[in-house]
Amino acid sequence: MLTKRIIPCLDIKDGRTVKGTNFVNLRDAGDPVALGALYAEQGADELVFLDITATVDNRKTLVDLVRNVARHVNIPFTVGGGISSVADVSALLNAGADKISINSSAVRRPELINELALQFGSQCIVVAIDTREVPGESGIEHVVHTHGGRKPTDLRTIPWAKEAQERGAGEILLTSMDADGTKAGFALALTAEVSGSLSIPVIASGGAGTMEHFTEVFTTGKADAGLAASIFHFREIGIPELKSYLKGEGISVRP
């Protein structure tokens, strides 16, 4: 049976993980390769590396990092942050990334999704959507934001997710900016609505604080995967205990 995926997310700045971690057994907690390998060993199903600096100068550092991760990690991983061209994607995939994630560049020029899907196949194209609730004339609207959540756009989340799928996205990484950092749970209603509107998998992100939140996002939220960062980095929840808990809750997970 296809399992629900648990995905730790590592934020990268100048080739190092940031936001801090609390792994006493790691010689260097800032080393993304060591942390990624540790998560893989513990049963993470995939990893996401997000380059939060994403400047031109850092591109080479990122490609080197991807090469190192691919060398040492034996599970699939996605790389995102500042990717805006076929050439960017080509460099990252050739370095060993399994998937790439695009966000602002896809909003700016949606044809990029088509170009990447045609060139590399939909299976490796993740479109990340950062969404925030904004009061509109007819109630709450889910507004797509770019530039790390700083810039609101004219796009609304459901139609944009559908358009991304139509253009060739293989998965949607949906981050609720309202839930992100709260540890109060994933944005269940929105996640369920996006997932129900699409025929491609949805990775839910933002708000994970307890193991119950993962149960909710996989049942009520209809998510195919759940992504989180700090709860794993600070060992508030261990991946083995999370998986064994989910199994007990009747959720299909990889041991």
């Binding site: 296809l2 399992t3 995926r5 199903d45 939909s122 299976q123 293989g170 998965e171």
Partner: peptide, 10 residues
């Protein structure tokens, strides 16, 4: 069910 079939299966 969603297509593609993405993830870990036994």
């Amino acid at each position: 069910q969603k297509v593609p079939h993405v993830g870990w299966n036994n």
